[in-house]
Protein backbone atom coordinates (compact mmCIF):
# COMPACT_ATOMS: atom_id res chain seq x y z
CA UNK A 1 0.00 0.00 0.00
CA UNK A 2 2.73 2.42 0.97
CA UNK A 3 4.69 1.26 -2.06
CA UNK A 4 2.17 2.64 -4.54
CA UNK A 5 2.14 6.02 -2.85
CA UNK A 6 5.94 6.05 -2.61
CA UNK A 7 6.16 5.13 -6.31
CA UNK A 8 3.92 8.08 -7.18
CA UNK A 9 6.07 10.28 -4.97
CA UNK A 10 9.32 8.93 -6.38
CA UNK A 11 8.14 9.60 -9.91
CA UNK A 12 7.20 13.17 -9.09
CA UNK A 13 10.48 13.85 -7.27
CA UNK A 14 12.51 12.52 -10.19
CA UNK A 15 10.41 14.56 -12.60
CA UNK A 16 10.95 17.78 -10.67
CA UNK A 17 14.68 17.20 -10.16
CA UNK A 18 15.32 16.41 -13.82
CA UNK A 19 13.13 19.28 -14.98
CA UNK A 20 14.78 21.82 -12.71
CA UNK A 21 18.30 20.80 -13.69
CA UNK A 22 19.00 22.94 -16.70
CA UNK A 23 19.00 20.92 -19.87
CA UNK A 24 22.43 21.00 -21.41
CA UNK A 25 22.53 22.51 -24.81
CA UNK A 26 23.55 20.12 -27.53
CA UNK A 27 21.54 16.93 -27.47
CA UNK A 28 24.44 14.55 -26.84
CA UNK A 29 24.49 12.95 -23.44
CA UNK A 30 27.90 12.82 -21.86
CA UNK A 31 29.20 9.86 -19.89
CA UNK A 32 28.74 11.79 -16.68
CA UNK A 33 25.10 12.45 -17.40
CA UNK A 34 24.48 8.75 -17.93
CA UNK A 35 26.08 7.93 -14.61
CA UNK A 36 24.10 10.67 -12.94
CA UNK A 37 20.84 9.42 -14.40
CA UNK A 38 21.61 5.86 -13.38
CA UNK A 39 22.40 7.07 -9.88
CA UNK A 40 19.16 9.01 -9.54
CA UNK A 41 17.07 6.12 -10.79
CA UNK A 42 18.89 3.66 -8.54
CA UNK A 43 18.81 5.77 -5.40
CA UNK A 44 15.04 6.08 -5.36
CA UNK A 45 14.35 2.36 -5.85
CA UNK A 46 15.21 0.96 -2.38
CA UNK A 47 13.09 3.61 -0.73
CA UNK A 48 10.19 2.85 -3.05
CA UNK A 49 9.98 -0.87 -2.36
CA UNK A 50 11.28 -0.76 1.20
CA UNK A 51 11.78 -4.16 2.80
CA UNK A 52 9.13 -5.82 0.68
CA UNK A 53 11.06 -7.35 -2.19
CA UNK A 54 8.27 -9.63 -3.38
CA UNK A 55 7.21 -9.85 -7.01
CA UNK A 56 3.75 -8.55 -6.11
CA UNK A 57 5.13 -5.44 -4.50
CA UNK A 58 7.55 -4.61 -7.30
CA UNK A 59 4.95 -5.29 -9.98
CA UNK A 60 2.57 -2.89 -8.28
CA UNK A 61 5.32 -0.26 -8.06
CA UNK A 62 6.08 -0.62 -11.77
CA UNK A 63 2.41 -0.32 -12.63
CA UNK A 64 2.11 2.78 -10.44
CA UNK A 65 5.07 4.45 -12.17
CA UNK A 66 3.82 3.51 -15.63
CA UNK A 67 0.36 4.74 -14.76
CA UNK A 68 1.76 8.06 -13.59
CA UNK A 69 3.75 8.50 -16.79
CA UNK A 70 0.77 7.67 -18.93
CA UNK A 71 -1.47 10.04 -17.00
CA UNK A 72 1.01 12.89 -17.36
CA UNK A 73 1.50 12.35 -21.08
CA UNK A 74 -2.28 12.33 -21.42
CA UNK A 75 -2.47 15.62 -19.52
CA UNK A 76 0.26 17.08 -21.72
CA UNK A 77 -1.62 16.21 -24.87
CA UNK A 78 -4.79 17.81 -23.52
CA UNK A 79 -3.32 21.06 -22.26
CA UNK A 80 -0.37 22.81 -23.88
CA UNK A 81 0.17 24.67 -20.61
CA UNK A 82 0.91 21.49 -18.68
CA UNK A 83 3.18 20.47 -21.54
CA UNK A 84 5.07 23.73 -21.22
CA UNK A 85 5.50 23.25 -17.48
CA UNK A 86 6.65 19.64 -17.75
CA UNK A 87 8.70 19.77 -20.93
CA UNK A 88 9.56 23.41 -21.36
CA UNK A 89 9.00 25.36 -24.55
CA UNK A 90 11.14 25.71 -27.66
CA UNK A 91 13.22 28.89 -27.44
CA UNK A 92 14.60 31.05 -30.22
CA UNK A 93 18.35 31.61 -29.80
CA UNK A 94 19.06 33.42 -33.05
CA UNK A 95 16.35 35.42 -34.79
CA UNK A 96 17.06 36.94 -38.21
CA UNK A 97 20.75 36.48 -37.55
CA UNK A 98 20.59 38.25 -34.17
CA UNK A 99 21.39 36.62 -30.85
CA UNK A 100 18.61 36.72 -28.31
CA UNK A 101 20.59 37.76 -25.23
CA UNK A 102 17.90 36.96 -22.69
CA UNK A 103 17.53 33.35 -23.84
CA UNK A 104 21.27 32.82 -24.17
CA UNK A 105 21.86 34.03 -20.61
CA UNK A 106 18.83 32.32 -19.13
CA UNK A 107 19.72 28.92 -20.59
CA UNK A 108 23.48 29.35 -19.97
CA UNK A 109 24.15 28.65 -23.62
CA UNK A 110 27.66 28.76 -24.96
CA UNK A 111 28.47 30.06 -28.39
CA UNK A 112 30.39 26.85 -29.03
CA UNK A 113 27.27 24.75 -28.54
CA UNK A 114 25.39 26.68 -31.18
CA UNK A 115 28.38 26.57 -33.49
CA UNK A 116 28.59 22.81 -33.09
CA UNK A 117 24.91 22.49 -33.96
CA UNK A 118 25.40 24.73 -37.00
CA UNK A 119 28.28 22.60 -38.21
CA UNK A 120 26.23 19.46 -37.68
CA UNK A 121 23.57 20.79 -40.03
CA UNK A 122 26.12 21.82 -42.62
CA UNK A 123 26.37 25.56 -41.96
CA UNK A 124 29.98 26.67 -42.00
CA UNK A 125 29.82 29.94 -40.13
CA UNK A 126 27.53 31.16 -37.39
CA UNK A 127 26.99 34.31 -39.45
CA UNK A 128 25.11 32.24 -42.02
CA UNK A 129 22.52 31.20 -39.45
CA UNK A 130 19.14 32.79 -39.92
CA UNK A 131 17.29 31.07 -37.09
CA UNK A 132 18.52 28.85 -34.28
CA UNK A 133 16.03 27.20 -31.97
CA UNK A 134 16.68 25.41 -28.69
CA UNK A 135 14.33 22.46 -28.71
CA UNK A 136 12.60 20.97 -25.70
CA UNK A 137 14.91 17.96 -25.51
CA UNK A 138 17.99 20.17 -25.58
CA UNK A 139 18.79 19.84 -29.27
CA UNK A 140 19.40 22.91 -31.42
CA UNK A 141 17.71 23.31 -34.81
CA UNK A 142 19.45 25.57 -37.33
CA UNK A 143 17.99 27.38 -40.33
CA UNK A 144 20.64 28.80 -42.69
CA UNK A 145 20.13 32.13 -44.45
CA UNK A 146 18.64 31.84 -47.91
CA UNK A 147 21.18 32.51 -50.58
Amino acid sequence: MGTILRAFGGYLILLIVVRVLKRRAGSQMTMFEFVFIFLMGGVIIPSTVGKDRSVTNCTCAVIAVGFMHRALSWAKSRSPKIGAVLDGVPLVIIKNGEWQKEVVHGMKLRREDVEAAARASGVKSIDDVDYAILERNGGISIFPKEK
Partner: peptide
Protein backbone atom coordinates in the same frame (compact mmCIF):
# COMPACT_ATOMS: atom_id res chain seq x y z
CA UNK B 1 16.19 11.10 -28.69
CA UNK B 2 15.00 10.17 -25.28
CA UNK B 3 14.76 13.10 -22.92
CA UNK B 4 16.85 12.89 -19.74
CA UNK B 5 13.72 12.22 -17.75
CA UNK B 6 12.83 9.25 -19.92
CA UNK B 7 16.26 7.79 -19.19
CA UNK B 8 15.61 8.14 -15.48
CA UNK B 9 12.18 6.59 -15.93
CA UNK B 10 13.67 3.62 -17.75
CA UNK B 11 16.12 2.98 -14.94
CA UNK B 12 13.35 3.42 -12.41
CA UNK B 13 11.10 0.87 -14.10
CA UNK B 14 13.98 -1.52 -14.76
CA UNK B 15 15.32 -1.23 -11.24
CA UNK B 16 11.94 -1.83 -9.63
CA UNK B 17 11.41 -4.95 -11.71
CA UNK B 18 14.91 -6.10 -10.90
CA UNK B 19 14.32 -5.79 -7.18
CA UNK B 20 11.33 -8.10 -7.45
Amino acid sequence: QLTPFEFVLIFYLGGLTLTG
